[in-house]
């Protein structure tokens, strides 16, 4: 899905989280929102997911104004930094949650739900953990379950907030490739937030560098590396 951000701004009371920013994301791209904390990248992601309402500006999905679309209607697969898995549900119940939450008419039959959950567990390469609870999983497993849960609703886009933030260095490397593979397999427009330039450069097709609520530069990783547009970008990517 093609995503267009048109002059989106957001302030919380007196503090401005986002200056008016505009950005076009082509369908099927894997995009990194890169910047230090407080740069507004998570706010932008949450606005795309429908978790935050912009103070001004519009969001267009495939050309249609979707600014006022509720979270439930957006069908954005969102992976939270803390993963936000439901602690009182098994892995199976977590992944099936979005399907079971649908109104009766749209809800797939039980067998179909089971089939889809099994397929997703294969995709994240964790078959056979259906009956475990989140607290019985490792950090990397939790991240992948959160990803599978987001994918279960057949999302129109995939949004990930610091997806590797809570993991140690070794697992982080492994899971980067995992995300790339899942992106390539599903073809979903995928946007992830990170403060780690290696992660952004290695993984993304398109990197959006942000600072102080502004977009500093948008470009392919090698463009950004070779031709930083502002002193901030130069400093940030060489740091």
């Amino acid at each position: 899905m093609h995503i267009e951000i048109d002059e989106i701004a957001k302030s919380f009371g007196d503090t401005t989280a986002l200056q008016p920013v505009s950005l076009a994301i082509p369908s099927g791209a894997l995009v990194a929102l890169l910047g230090p904390s407080g740069s507004g990248k998570t706010t932008l992601l949450r606005i795309l997911g429908g978790l935050e309402y912009p103070t001004s500006g519009r969001v267009l999905f495939d050309g249609a104004d979707s600014t006022g679309l509720s979270v439930q209607q957006r069908r954005a697969g969102f992976v939270f930094q803390s993963y936000a898995l439901f602690r009182h549900m098994t892995v199976f119940e977590n992944i099936a949650y979005g399907l079971k939450a649908r109104p009766r008419k749209l809800r797939p039959p039980r067998a179909e739900i089971a089939r889809r959950v099994a397929k997703l567990l294969d995709l994240i390469q964790l078959p056979g953990i259906t009956d475990r609870y989140p607290t019985q999983l490792s950090g990397g497993q939790r991240q992948r379950v959160a990803l599978a849960r987001a994918l279960a609703i057949e999302p129109r886009m995939l949004l990930l907030d610091e997806p590797f933030g809570a993991l140690d260095a070794k697992v982080r490397k492994e899971l980067r490739h995992g995300l790339r593979e899942i992106h390539d397999a599903t073809g979903l427009t995928t946007i992830f937030v990170t403060h780690d330039q290696d992660e952004a450069m290695e993984l993304a097709d398109l990197v959006v560098v942000m600072s102080m609520g502004r977009i500093e530069q948008v470009g392919r990783p090698q463009d950004i590396r070779e031709r930083p547009a502002t002193p901030f970008v130069r400093e940030f990517i060489t740091a």
Binding site: D6, E7, S11, G13, G50, L51, Y53, T55, S56, G57, R58, G68, L69, S70, V71
Partner: peptide
Amino acid sequence: MSETPSSHRPRFRSAT
């Protein structure tokens, strides 16, 4: 472009 000056009440339903 629609302006909703610093109002905390979004037009759509908040998630929480």
